[in-house]
Design a protein around this nucleic acid. Sequence first.
RNA 1: GUGGCCUUAGCUCAACCGGCAGAGCAGCGGACUGUGGAUCCGCAGGUUACGGGUUCGACCCCCGUAGGCCACCCCA
Length: 428
Amino acid sequence: MASFRAPRGTRDLLPEVRAGLSRLEGVARSLAARYGYREMEIPLFEQTAVFERGIGASTDVVEKELFRLAPRTEEAESWALRPEATAGIVRAFVQHGMQTLPQPVKLSVLGPMFRYDRPQAGRYRQFWQWDAEAIGDPGPAVDAEVIEMGLRFYVEAGVTDVQVLVNSIGDSACRPAYLGRLKEYFGRHEAELSDTDRQRLETSPLRLLDSKDPAMAALIAAAPKISECLCDACSTHFAAVLAHLEAVGVPYRVEPTLVRGLDYYARTAFEYYRRGAEGQQQALGGGGRYDGLAELLGGRPTPAIGFALGLDRVLLALEDGSEPRARPAAPLAVIVGADPADTVARLRVASLLRAEGLAVRAELAPRKLGRQLEAASRDHAHFAVIIGDELADGHVQLKDLEAGTQRLVALDDLAKDLTRAAKSHHHG
RNA sequence: GUGGCCUUAGCUCAACCGGCAGAGCAGCGGACUGUGGAUCCGCAGGUUACGGGUUCGACCCCCGUAGGCCACCCCA
């Protein structure tokens, strides 16, 4: 048994899986370009306070899932690996004075996030997200545009049965009053609450609505609805978001109990769910509006909305679906040699062809010719370049492995011949 | 952080009631000395996840640890 293994909750993305992730990244980059989002990078770690103040100190993500780095000295700043990208992006927006750019500023980040969770299928301590943020537009049209872009990602990635859930969770004008009503309502039924739910009553009453406890279902159904408590501005905004979604043909379901786990959300909240998926990891992605976040991080008040889509969960969803798994790319040709020991000639010819832009593999193991050709066939190479005594007067054998034919070619013409042959192969 | 199930070769899995750890696939080689996907034969690969205990004897029973999966919690 190997003595070392990947840390708990992490995994090596072997080439087949990495290829699938790259494909998703390609879809994301293509969409970002079409929708006007510019890709950027932010550090994998930030000052812990960025997350504590941005996401909320009493959220699960910060309270129990934050990957804190041990400080190197007593005086050192406290650091943590990023559990999500939004807080870091907004920190960068503020730091670099992006409020002076034409608004909104549309930014895209692709990369790994870290949460100290208990691992499960589709839930890792290091996981990949595509994050897109439109900063500086109060919406509601941009809300719908963001939601539509996210849905399009799943369509183009090949995930079927994705459902859009939306809700409005109010803003600083109306949410406090709603929270008061919720506290009052659940306070009357305190005896029916579980211990954790009773605790939530104090810290984050909104999350009581999120409970999956079947015993809570009736209680939740009868609870005051946020939709009945929205202020005029919020309810107008929400209605306009829905109207825009309908205008661009995004099917959605208003989910009155949808609340998000991060404190910075206001007004629009949405999630992408996989219908009929087994297991609990059905949330493929989500997002919302966070008009107060820039201010929390020391910037000017700036309206913004964005999403985070979980790429690992998309890969998982595609596994039992239609997407074929990536095969290793076949080399155009394999360079083999009659003299097993003469690796110099094989390497030289391969180098020559690669300089001309061709993808070839040099057979460098000192095995006899038959074995070399066998390996070339297994690689699904189109051609084999056989190097033998002909090399003395500048020639090699070019063998078509599919047709079984073979002809003598001058070394000087080899790259040209292979290029032409590759083209006719692709057309045929 | 809580509970349940699981862990045998690189992969998929066998091993009777507690009695010599095996097979298929993959890898490498030989048959085949400058000509390939087939076939046959062989080689290599293991502290049975790790650590303890019970027993004449443990892959098998017991305890602990780690990891995986599942359900919570929560999220992506």
